[in-house]
């Protein structure tokens, strides 16, 4: 990755819908170069996906997703350590983020579902039932304040004067 790649990445990370022209003009390169850089980053798997930060509270009632953080303690396996169990967990559709962490437990698993019941049954049927899983602790998310560096909810309006020195 050269510095220009990094700069392109920073701009699309902040706004995935920014046009190639706008990226190009900000970085003083051509739109074709931007397209090529993005293609390369996609091919190399640096850019895995373009996603959206959503404020579920603004969605019509009950259409929002329910999210929970689950602390999972496991018994590492001979030879494969955490890897085999991790792969098993990560593949479930309900799992949106999955990290191996230091500290009091092993995996931080973030799951999403349409209802509390869906998540509860995922935890009991799928997660806790895996052989090497010793314990789980589920924390439902009650309110989002910030996601992916973006503050969620109303920000007070800009109060600058229209013309100033």
């Amino acid at each position: 990755m050269n510095p220009i790649d990094t700069q392109v990445l920073a701009l699309v990370s902040a706004n995935a819908r920014m046009s190639a022209d706008d990226i190009a003009d900000q970085l003083q390169i051509s739109a074709n170069q931007v397209e090529t850089i993005l293609k390369n980053l996609e091919t190399q798997g640096v850019i895995v996906q373009y996603t959206t930060v959503v404020d579920e509270k603004k969605l019509p009632q009950r259409s929002g997703k329910i999210k929970a953080l689950i602390e999972v303690s496991v018994r590492p396996e001979k030879r494969t350590g955490f890897e085999a169990i991790a792969r098993k967990i990560a593949q479930f559709t309900n799992v949106v983020d999955h990290y191996l962490v230091s500290g009091g437990y092993d995996f931080l698993v973030i799951v999403e579902g349409d209802s509390l019941e869906e998540i509860s049954s995922f935890v009991s049927d799928k997660l806790a039932s895996i052989d090497n899983v010793r314990s789980t602790a589920t924390h439902f998310i009650m309110k989002k304040y910030k996601e992916k560096g973006i503050l969620i909810g109303q920000q007070p309006k800009e109060e600058r004067l229209a013309v100033s020195p």
Partner: peptide
């Protein structure tokens, strides 16, 4: 008085104005 100030008075009250007249960070 500052010429900027005079212009400021004109801008105040105008609707849907995009201001490139500020002198401060956003």
């Amino acid at each position: 008085p500052s010429g900027i100030r005079k212009f400021f008075d004109l801008v105040i009250g105008a609707q849907d104005v995009i201001s490139l007249g500020v002198g401060e960070p956003d």
